[in-house]
Computed example of a mutant assay.
Amino acid sequence: MQTRWGAIFALWFAGLCAAGQFSKVGVIFQELAAIWPEAGTRLGLVVSVVGAVGIVFGTTAGLIVARAGARRIIIGALVAGAGLSALQCLGLPLGLMIASRVAEGFAHLAIVVAGPVLIAGAAAPRDQAAAMTLWSTFFGLAFAVTAFFGLPFAQAHGASALWAVHAGLMLVAAALLAVVLPRETILPAPPLQPGTVLRDHLAIYASPRIAAPALGFVFYTMIFVAALTLVPGLVEPRLRGLTAAVMPLLSIASSLGLGVQFTRRIGAVRTAQIGFAVGALAAAGWAVTSGVAQVGAAFLLSAGLGFVQGASFAAIPELNDTPASRAQAAGAIAQLGNVGTTLGTPLLLALTAAMGPQAIAAFSLPLCLGGIAMHLWLSRRRARA
């Protein structure tokens, strides 16, 4: 089998568009207050409600993709996402905007569940680590691109103009995938019913193969988004800009660089464990340093977590060899990933209020060790099975 890199890059572009559903409001959050001055604390829902959909329905989405076909789901979700972005350009009142964001959450979830399944199927075994690691960068890169290009564009032309561009990009992604992805053969499967869904959820999380990528990934997401949000504010003021700019880029670079090489040579699970070990070392370093050295510890934390980021997605095809099980694993990653990103920042914020900068070490070190222990336990279960 030859790797279809054209399809993989088109799918990655679709992932960037899906992450844009977060970044198109997260990056311009301050500007949104002028659009809905009456919103108060409800304005946060415009950002967070998209992820809440993944918490509730992430694994269910994996079950639906396994039954309906990943190609059909992702193209439909991109078209729906484009329509919702276009609708948001019309200047919706806050209640309707939040409702449209809930609908957008379902489109986002469909893309991030179907994408890994299709990428794994488009990559030859020797290239799966690189392809899945590339996919794993879509979230951080979308935020960086939106901050660099989208924020000044929105400040010059308004939020609606940015959302119109996003709608157009999603339609381009849908058209690309319609061309480059081959049609699927959908095998018959029993319809989803409440009892079936519960049974399938229990089976997914009981499986040391299907659940393993997600059960490790949740430790990563708890730390990563919280650290990107809060660490720059805890270093010396002269170093804050550098820290905020370098941390996400270093994570992407380590994932695509050494992370891919490690995954190819020693496997995705061991690479994730190495990443958590580097993160634990960085957390300990943060606790005993200050100034420039503490920024170095933050950079090391980002680099280590970059290993975990790529390896977690590479573990989907490494541990699961059928499209159905890969869809279920991707759904579990979406579900637990959203749990981590939703809970991590408020927990670290509360800990920081109580402990100051030392909260970074107190928060990150146990989670890194927990990620290592989780993968050790699941590896032993797979060995016994």
Rank of each mutant, 00 (worst) to 15 (best):
A203Q: 09
G340T: 15
G310T: 04
A287I: 09
I372A: 07
A99T: 14
A99Q: 00
H375K: 04
F363N: 01
Q261E: 14
L347W: 12
S379F: 07
E184W: 10
P323E: 02
A107H: 06
G81F: 03
R380N: 10
T345E: 05
G371K: 04
A156V: 09
A167M: 08
M374N: 05
I333H: 05
G337V: 11
A189I: 00
V145Q: 01
T185P: 12
G54C: 07
R240W: 02
A329H: 03
A86V: 15
L11R: 06
Y205F: 14
V278M: 11
A130F: 02
V308N: 04
R71L: 07
L376A: 07
A82Y: 06
A161W: 11
P190Q: 00
P346K: 00
H108P: 12
L250F: 04
R126N: 10
Q309G: 07
I204Y: 02
P116W: 03
M374R: 01
G44C: 00
L176R: 04
L343A: 13
V47H: 02
K24I: 12
T221Q: 04
G6C: 13
A175E: 06
A129F: 03
P323W: 00
G267P: 14
G54H: 01
A253K: 03
Q294G: 13
E31C: 09
L319K: 07
S160Y: 06
R42K: 12
A226M: 09
Y205V: 15
A68Y: 09
A33E: 12
L118K: 11
L249M: 15
T60D: 02
L118G: 10
A293S: 09
I266A: 06
L92S: 08
A189M: 04
V218M: 01
A123I: 08
S136C: 13
Q21S: 15
P191C: 02
T263H: 05
A124N: 12
